[in-house]
Design a protein around this nucleic acid. Structure first.
Lengths: 151, 151
DNA sequence: CTTGAAATCACCCGAAAGTGTGAGGGCTGA
DNA sequence: TCAGCCCTCACACTTTCGGGTGATTTCAAG
């Protein structure tokens, strides 16, 4: 995720630099044609200014959009924070139960989905609660979300 | 909310136009001083281009930040989607109960917090469940979140 | 081989959640 | 004034949760 953001960012920087370079080149080229006509300078300067303001707006827009970590449609791929899991001693199975809980499933439904008994799910969820310092499943979900354990 | 956005937007347009005008004026003024020095034009043009690119980026940034409702760090201020609330017929009080539920509070705690009886909270939550098509509070929370009703 | 963590399951019991029904008061628009 | 919505509360009932305790199995590390 971090590398992806950096990559987009550098791509935009390069893109912006490239566009700026190209425009400067075009500018250099047309300079000799226009400057010979005498009083065209003020229009020329104005045009350049407007053009670069426009490209600036465009570039700024692009940069901001990429810097914002909330694209929401590109890659919502979620990864639970391993360090928190280890610190709290939450096992993989317990995390699975926690995830299903957050989806709004009952213990019985989780049991069916994970092919274990209802009692097993209860045990797992009880362990999760104590490890999260929660006394209700809604509380556990809330805490897990703000800790980055579940999406 | 809508009027505020429009206001900010127009303020930015005005600000940008003003800056552009000032720069053009400064440009006009310095033109006669610099152009007399002969080969200063290319540097001059480049400076103008860079300057306007910079101001363009700044303006674009400002405009985007105001237009984009997802800045994430500037204003986390959350607003439930009114159209969804109306479509489902969820009343203000029901939404309040829903929000407290999502924070992991029990019905009794919600009752204490909102200064109503436990039975009242139960009634509200029952109504919320049926309106959201949920049969459990965790499910209701999940649905409400993906519908943008709660944070 | 022993020890321990993880996963599995069972039973009991109290607390919380959720359902259904009924009802009264306040406010508003027809 | 009256229908309709909202908020409020009650009570009985069923279901689900959550805590506590204990047990078995598997598997990997010591």
């Amino acid at each position: 995720m971090f590398s992806a953001v950096s990559k987009s960012w550098w791509a935009n920087i390069l893109l912006y630099g490239l566009s700026l370079g190209l425009l400067l080149a075009a500018l250099q080229f047309s300079q000799y044609r226009l400057l010979t006509q005498g009083n065209a300078e003020k229009w020329y300067i104005g045009l350049v200014a407007a053009l670069f303001a426009a490209i600036g707006i465009w570039a700024g827009k692009k940069l901001i959009q990429k810097n914002d970590p909330q694209p929401a449609f590109i890659v919502p791929e979620f990864r639970p924070k391993e360090e928190v899991l280890e610190r709290l001693g939450i096992t993989p199975r317990e995390l699975e139960v926690l995830e299903q809980m957050a989806l709004g499933l009952s213990n019985q439904e989780i049991a069916d989905k994970l092919f274990v008994s209802l009692n097993t799910v209860k045990t797992h969820s009880s362990n999760v609660f104590s490890k999260l310092g929660a006394i209700r499943r809604t509380q556990a979900i809330q805490r897990a979300k703000e800790m980055g354990l579940i999406a």
